[in-house]
């Protein structure tokens, strides 16, 4: 009875339009599922048994990617309740933690997975270095990786300002203080003033949209954190994953 029903469902046009093949329990279907699904297509159809060994990658790259997905999910949730306005932002966060259904959990999860992602990406890089996986032909993908790492740090850091509490304001104040010391482009940096940099036209001013961390900085960090950097890191990951496939995985023989 159940078998008959299942067969009926599987034979409908709707089902067939979505799934191009039967359940992947034989070689042909196990190949087709990897071919026909854009997401699974990130993977090859078959891999060497030895590349499965947990001890080799410890899943660090995969978990970094998983953290990014989780952060996107929880981040979108938080965006429903958050307004990047210095008069509201702090109260929004308080409301999320105390009044919004599941809000506290979503914020905690967003926070801890962000920290975990930084750590995992560092560890992934460590793994790639220690297993010599950056050597030819994977030089370029290592470079993409370094950029992904930088973007990960910037994502974490721009998010740090958004709760608009004391921790946020002053951590970002210390951080952006560095920018004014940029050689040539910061007014307090070497050759900055010689090149006409002032506190209100240098690179720090560009970053925070003012001379102190205030409303413009909050808006800029919000846009960077929720739009610009996620888009960039997604592009980076697309290239990264593509190249892992094209360059071949370095796994043990």
């Amino acid at each position: 009875m159940i078998d008959r029903l299942a067969k009926f469902v599987r034979d409908t046009q709707i089902w067939q339009s979505v799934f191009r093949h039967g359940y992947p329990d034989n070689d042909r279907n196990q190949s087709l599922i990897m071919f026909s699904s854009v997401l699974l297509h990130l993977h090859p159809v078959k891999i060497r048994r030895s590349a499965l060994r947990f001890r080799y990658t410890m899943c660090l790259g995969g978990l970094s990617a998983f953290m990014f997905l989780l952060l996107t999910f929880t981040g979108i949730f938080l965006m429903f309740y958050y307004v990047p306005d210095t008069r509201q932002a702090f109260q929004n966060i308080k409301d999320i933690t105390s009044n919004v259904f599941m809000g506290g959990l979503m914020r905690d999860l967003h926070k801890w997975s962000a920290e975990a992602m930084v750590f995992l990406v560092w560890m992934h890089m460590f793994r790639v270095f220690m297993t010599g996986s950056y050597k030819a032909p994977r030089e370029f993908n290592w470079g993409i990786g370094v950029i992904l790492l930088t973007l990960t740090l910037l994502l974490s850091w721009t998010g740090y300002l958004l709760p608009w509490d004391q921790l946020a304001l002053w951590a970002i104040t210390v951080g952006t203080k560095m920018a004014e010391a940029t050689p040539f482009f910061g007014y307090a940096g070497p050759w900055g003033q010689q090149l006409g940099m002032r506190v209100d036209n240098d690179i720090r001013f560009l970053l925070i949209g003012g001379t102190v961390v205030g409303q413009s900085a909050l808006l800029r960090f919000y846009v960077l954190h929720c739009v610009a950097l996620p888009v960039l890191i997604t592009l980076g990951m697309v290239v990264h994953f593509w190249r892992i496939r094209k360059d071949g995985f370095s796994g043990p023989l």
């Binding site: 506290g104 740090l153 509490d165 004391q166 002053w170 104040t173």
Partner: peptide, 23 residues
């Protein structure tokens, strides 16, 4: 739980001011 201190205020400067741990 994710930390949340008092609302940001330019009047009180914490000591020490620390960047996020990874920096």
């Amino acid at each position: 739980h994710a930390p949340l201190e008092d609302m940001a205020s330019a009047d009180t400067t914490p000591n020490p001011m620390k960047a996020p741990w990874y920096f």
